[in-house]
């Protein structure tokens, strides 16, 4: 496979049909190798997959990534290497797809304010993990958690609540939550930023400054 400069990549991908077809194939193969490396070396959750399965996944993802690169080719300025930029697009696309598959059964509708955290019905030791802290501190934590729970349901909109619980507590990826909300990552950042600001203001009004909470829970 020939090595191209950034300028050659862009020129060839815009080139005459024969030149363009070769550049597209070179790009697709390059992205396939990168994705296959990522799937087979960096993803322990895929360790049970056969090399054939991983190779097929990498093929499909590389095809999609090549199309995505072409759609955005006009935005490439040449600050990074072209192949790094293309790999960035491929990696993001691959990881997003893996997240989507892993969380295919997740539903935001399950994230309701009614009993989602169940703090009031949960024992202090369960809330605090396997090693119980001293009783005084455990009680203090439980009281703070109850105030946080109260804040979540009182201060946030249902949409903010769903997003916050899904992302901050359930570890659901942003892409998955954004897709279910019919939104995008940027809008989700703003939604969560506003939710966090409202919660922090509320908690501070309850004499629960950030420094105190950090100290209490670490």
């Amino acid at each position: 496979m020939s090595e191209r400069t950034n300028e050659q990549w862009v020129a060839d991908l815009h080139g005459a049909p024969g030149v363009q077809a070769q550049a597209l194939e070179d790009l697709r193969m390059r992205l396939q190798r990168s994705i296959l490396y990522y799937l087979s070396h960096e993803r322990s959750d895929l360790a049970s997959r056969s090399s054939q399965e991983l190779s097929q996944m990498a093929d499909d993802l590389a095809q999609d990534a090549t199309l995505r690169v072409m759609e955005n080719l006009s935005t490439f300025r040449g600050d990074s290497r072209f192949t790094t930029w293309a790999n960035k697009i491929a990696v993001r696309l691959a990881i997003s797809e893996l997240r989507r598959v892993r969380h295919k059964d997740f539903s935001l509708d399950d994230m309701t304010a009614d009993g989602d955290l169940q703090i009031e019905n949960t024992t202090v030791s369960a809330l605090n993990g396997t090693t119980p802290p001293d009783p005084e501190r455990a009680t203090e934590r439980a009281e703070v958690l109850q105030k946080i729970d109260q804040a979540l349901s009182e201060v946030l909109t249902p949409r903010q609540y769903q997003a916050l619980v899904a992302i901050a507590m359930r570890d659901i990826p942003m892409d998955v939550v954004a897709e279910q909300m019919g939104s995008n990552r940027n809008a989700l950042y703003k939604l969560l930023h506003d939710a966090r600001r409202k919660l922090r203001l509320y908690l501070e009004s309850q004499d629960l400054p950030i420094d105190y909470m950090l100290e209490l829970f670490h």
Binding site: L127, T131, R141, L164, I167, M169, R170, H193, M213
Partner: peptide, 18 residues
């Protein structure tokens, strides 16, 4: 002193930098 991971993540998220 350990804490329920989900609650820990929530507190970290609330207290994290903007």
């Amino acid at each position: 002193m350990s804490t329920n991971p989900a609650m820990q993540r929530l507190v970290d998220f609330l207290c994290g930098s903007t």
